[in-house]
Nucleic acid binder design. Structure first.
Lengths: 210, 210
DNA sequence: TAGATTGTTAATCGATTAACAATC
DNA sequence: TAGATTGTTAATCGATTAACAATC
């Protein structure tokens, strides 16, 4: 097992491996070679073996990989067994969509709290989570150490809320607002889900693919 | 102007350029050099000039770039002026969130139709769009050529609906379901928004950043 | 055993960065 | 004019692919 810095390209493939292995497991597949895993994911066998080699030796010569155990290894690598928690800020349409439809547990997370400013939603319960007033955020984080803050708020309040989250000791921000959060605190990870960037990339690709 | 294949890395930066230039324009900035644009986006000046050189010569020696005109050039490159249209399939929480909160026009798109199976929502109007029964999809696409289909449906129906979209002549699929659509039709672009991949990458990064 | 397939090292390919002549 | 900054070519860096000895 090497102990090098893992490149972003590799990190972005890990969830895809996990997802594919889950499908294979559900389909009852017991073993798989890097060759056939690669074919099903549009990757080369070399790349898969190279990627996995950053983290350990999970295969067996002449056999390949056991689907279930490789999936478990990748879950461990991804930190899915660390009991991460998440607090959601902004129970608008998107926030509600995540609360009701997104399976946090399938990514190893537990959604533990939700906050909003609107008195009309505060106090209500969605997906078993009571919506708290945003004023309680600081106190909540102090009492309940939380791994990730989810920003599904209007962009105008995103910077100030991300400050509060960081002061409250979160480790990462899952940012759904359409701005670049300029976080300077070292060690804080920001993961952006920029819908418009995604749609614009699609726009480019369909426009040139003529 | 070169006429090479534009790499994916470059394509993914174009929307970020556009977004940053919009911010600069709104802030009243008239001109910017590759150096200062790079500093504000965490890129090197070289990279920015290299990226832009794939598409043309937009700057002026000794001056830099005019913010407004560079933004317009990038909009053009991204296909934002092509009158692209989108039809949304699946008016659940996420679909509704997109319909009500996402500004399609700011990405050069017009949301022209929405479909669902649920009789409880069919016929209702959201964000000025009447929800149609999914049975009308084929006929609608035949009558109204559409650039992009948006999949905000349960994963089980995603493959069959993507087939229908392709038969209906769409050019791209904006896929919010948590599966890899295995599209074989050449020329069809699939752009995935995989929430769980994104959260798992964040999970990895906060887990190792200790 | 023979065939299959791993993990790793070396070779190649592609993307980023540096350098610089051109020129506004 | 002198200084600033471009677009592009060359150099470097990093990621992907190929090759292969090891071995199940």
């Amino acid at each position: 097992m090497k102990k090098e810095k893992v490149s972003n390209a590799v990190i972005r493939r890990l969830p895809r491996y996990y997802r594919r292995l889950t499908e294979l497991l559900n389909a009852g597949t017991v073993r798989i070679s890097s060759k056939s895993l690669g074919e099903s994911m549009n990757l080369t066998a070399s790349q898969i073996r190279q990627d996995l080699s950053y983290f350990g030796e999970f295969g067996q010569q002449g056999y390949g990989y056991n689907v279930e155990s490789l999936r478990n290894e990748i879950a461990e690598i991804l930190g899915m067994n660390q009991g991460h928690t998440a607090a959601l800020l902004g129970v608008g349409n998107l926030g509600r969509a995540l609360m009701e439809n997104f399976h946090f547990d399938q990514s190893g997370f537990r959604l533990t709290a939700a906050f909003d400013v609107d008195p009309a939603v505060v106090g209500h319960e969605i997906a078993g989570i009571k919506i708290r007033p945003i004023e309680e955020l600081d106190e909540y984080l102090k009492q309940n150490p939380t791994s990730v803050g989810i920003l599904t708020v209007p962009r105008a309040v995103a910077p100030s809320l991300s400050e509060k989250l960081i002061e409250g000791g979160i480790k990462g921000i899952w940012n759904f607002t359409n701005i670049e959060l300029n976080i300077t605190t070292p060690g804080i990870i920001v993961e952006n889900v920029h819908f418009s960037d995604s749609l614009l990339a699609l726009s480019y690709l369909i426009s040139e693919a003529i």
